[in-house]
């Protein structure tokens, strides 16, 4: 008789986790080995990785296809500027404050737009983002329509020297990416995460199993919004300048993020990470092309959606079910002849 055991780890996922730990150590040491420009690029990569992972949780797992996440990116930026400039809060304290604000704002927003189904939900999220953009453009204390810069005194609160400041911002971005990917991974492994996967696979069946679909989706929306707001605050702490059009840009904070996830592979943990890397390789090599680059990006996303909806990671993974992040459970001890 064979012993059966259920486990999530595979040999490959164990190796991948080890490789991940080594990579993280190397990346954490980047301020000592990377130049200023590389450090900045890496920081940006981590911020996009966070946005992509969060949007993937929302759309790929919870089925909440939002095209208005720029609402929370911009909100985060403006909360940071308001807290530091108007209320004199230390920028490092303003970051978690922005996150809390994102959660508080997203709850009533969810109550409202959850009344819209499917694709109309998507446009509803866009309306909300527009309302945020137009409202912040009315706030003259924060520069109105033309925007405002972070005072040098506030920037100096982070660290006195320029390279120390840049290292700190880099670590914050790296830390955020680790936090977001880790949190989403942990969430998907939790009871609630399993419920979410069940809802994605079959909402009706999940309902009949007693899963509260609405509450699960609500929770995901609020948590995603909070972390997106935090990411937004960090993005604008790096940019040092904010304006309504930059803060609530549908292209920068939603279009690119969606392309990243679609190209990488929607509905997988690995997809957004791989997609971010592909996106930045493309951007660094092709961005000079301007409009043509964006046309190509849109075309690639369409082709992937039509031909290989599982994205690049889906193609790599193939049918073998390879996972670097062990999410699915596997039954061990089954022999070929058994059962």
């Amino acid at each position: 008789m064979t012993r059966l055991s259920v486990s999530r780890q595979t040999r490959l996922s164990n190796i991948a986790m080890l490789a991940l730990a080594v990579t993280l150590l190397l990346l954490a040491a980047a301020p000592w080995w990377a130049g200023r420009a590389e450090l900045r690029l890496l920081g940006e990569i981590f911020l996009y990785m966070s946005l992509a992972t969060l949007w993937n949780l929302l759309a790929g797992y919870a089925g909440l296809v939002s095209v208005g996440q720029q609402a929370f990116v911009g909100l985060g930026g403006y909360m940071l500027f308001a807290a530091t400039l108007l209320w004199g809060v230390h920028p490092l304290v303003a970051l978690p404050l922005a996150m809390v604000a994102g959660a508080l704002v997203s709850a009533p927003v969810a109550l409202l737009i959850f009344r819209l189904r499917g694709a109309y939900f998507a446009i509803g999220t866009w309306v909300v983002a527009e309302v945020f953009r137009l409202s912040f453009a009315q706030l003259s204390a924060l520069g109105g329509g033309s925007g405002i810069s972070l005072a040098p005194a506030i920037v100096k609160q982070l660290a006195s020297g320029r390279s120390a400041r840049e290292a700190l911002l880099y670590w914050l971005a790296l830390g955020l990416a680790v936090l977001v990917v880790g949190a989403v991974f942990a969430f998907l492994r939790s009871r609630r995460g399993v419920a979410l996967t069940a809802i994605r696979d079959n909402e009706l069946a999940a309902r009949s199993l007693g899963i509260d679909v609405w509450r699960t989706k609500f929770t995901v929306y609020v948590v995603t919004a909070a972390l997106t707001t935090l990411t937004g605050a960090l993005i604008f702490l790096q940019k040092l300048r904010i304006s309504p059009d930059a803060a609530f840009s549908a292209n920068d904070w939603t279009a690119f993020v969606i392309f990243i996830v679609v190209i990488g592979g929607i509905g997988t943990i690995e997809g957004p990470i791989i997609g971010t890397l592909i996106y930045f390789v493309l951007r660094e090599t092709m961005a000079d092309l301007g409009a043509a680059y964006l046309i190509a990006l849109g075309a690639v996303a369409i082709v992937i959606m039509l031909v290989a909806p599982q994205g690049v990671w889906g193609l790599i993974r193939g049918k073998s079910g390879t996972e670097l992040f062990p999410l699915s459970r596997r039954v061990r001890g089954l022999t070929d002849k058994g059962n």
Binding site: V65, I258, F259, A291, I295, A299, A301, I302, M305
Partner: peptide, 28 residues
Amino acid sequence: NRTMGDDILPPLLVTFGLSVIIQNALLA
């Protein structure tokens, strides 16, 4: 037509990609 089915994601993302293409083609 190749995106039509029970899943709302493909048509949404394909028309989204189309939106970006049209916008930038007009820009160019």
